[in-house]
Design a protein around this nucleic acid. Structure first.
Lengths: 223, 223
DNA sequence: TAGATTGTTAATCGATTAACAATC
DNA sequence: TAGATTGTTAATCGATTAACAATC
């Protein structure tokens, strides 16, 4: 074991682990027992050498000549990512986006339990999403503290994003997902992740256009 | 101009451009006229040298000693990303997620027009989301072709994801966003982007836990 | 002219991958 | 033993950043 636990783990590794995990869980439920890095590479479109390299940051989980035991690998990756514990989650915003997130079964499968939902719209407060009560944002700080909620998901209109982030910070939440296009400011102790469908569309569009430009260029050269 | 148009552009650059664009549009609507890379760096948490480097892949848009003209820079980045044209978009899935995307104003601001929405649920077909009619997925291929839709967004339950992708491919869609945890297979000519909230949560959780582990370690050393 | 800030180079840093010895 | 596949090294490749000359 040359593995140094204090070595810095590249960001890319942490982005790929959830991908491996998803495929492995699917394989496990399909009754698979072992898998090679070559096969996992095919299923995820990732270079097998990279998969092996990624895993060795955390230890050696495979058997030479055989491959990786799927169940063991799932457990190891879950432990690495913190998905071996239940994490309570508060949703701010009970609109369509909030509902979509609350209804998404994948969360619970990975230990993320939506425990509270907040909104400021009196017509929504008191209602339910699934079987979770929608509560007043004014109660957020108290309820989040009481229930020991660690994660906040911001699914409100853009204008309300910063306020939501501030309430969550005040309530002691240290992990936030922001589904708003707004750049939200949070204290240093908060780990924040932003997702904006527009960014993803623009990003994808660029690569599509680049392909088309390249094809056009080739056509030109041929003519 | 040392700028070689055929030089390969790093992925990271294309991920940052939409971020710059968002901030610049905000600044423009706030009445700003020029901005320095230093200031833009503060607003986006990105190193100013990197911002300048990123932009020079596409030309030199600034004035030494002055900075960048905001309006010009917005237009340049929009052109680079393809956001200077209207792109028609079809939404597959009229549930909460589909509704959230259809209602999101940011899309239209960047030239993405949701032109058609499809579902297979008879109770949804014939209804409206905003002012867009929900149509039968069986009609997808014909309608997408007729309307010249270029982009497909998959917002269906996981079990229906591959079918949705296949229909979109058959209809000639070359850009897809998959909001499903399923790994969807598409022909080589399709540019696909995947988003899964679970991946984002796991990713964010890891960094949070890492911080906490580091703090614990420091505390240990101090004691 | 003095001050500011870009554009660009070169150095540094980090991530990916090919190759192969270890070993099941 | 022969075949397979990991774990690990070292080479390659690519991205970030500091530094500074160019120039507004």
């Amino acid at each position: 074991m040359t593995h140094t636990p204090n070595e810095r783990i590249p960001e890319g590794v942490i982005e790929r682990l959830p991908l491996y995990l998803g495929v492995l869980i699917q394989l496990r439920s399909g009754g698979g027992d072992t898998i090679s890095s070559a096969r996992l590479g095919e299923l995820t479109d990732i270079n097998p050498a990279q998969i092996r390299r990624d895993l060795t940051y955390f230890g050696s989980f495979g058997k030479r000549g055989v491959g990786y035991d799927i169940t063991t690998l799932v457990e190891r990756i879950q432990r690495i990512l913190g998905a071996d514990h239940v994490h309570r989650l508060a949703l701010v915003g009970a609109g369509h986006l909030g509902s979509a997130i609350a209804d998404y079964n994948g969360l619970r499968q990975h230990g993320f339990h939506v425990t509270a939902i907040f909104d400021n719209d009196p017509t929504k407060i008191g209602g339910h999403i699934g079987d979770i009560l929608v509560q007043d944002v004014d109660e957020l700080e108290r309820i989040v503290k009481d229930q020991g909620i660690e994660i906040g998901v911001i699914a409100v209109p853009p204008a309300a994003a910063q306020v939501a982030a501030d309430s969550l910070s005040a309530a002691g939440v240290r992990i936030m997902l922001n589904y708003t296009p707004v750049i939200v400011r949070v204290p240093a102790e908060v780990t924040l992740h932003n997702t904006d469908p527009v960014h993803e569309l623009l990003h994808t569009l660029y690569y599509f256009l680049e392909d088309r430009r390249r094809d056009a260029h080739i056509a030109e050269v041929v003519i």
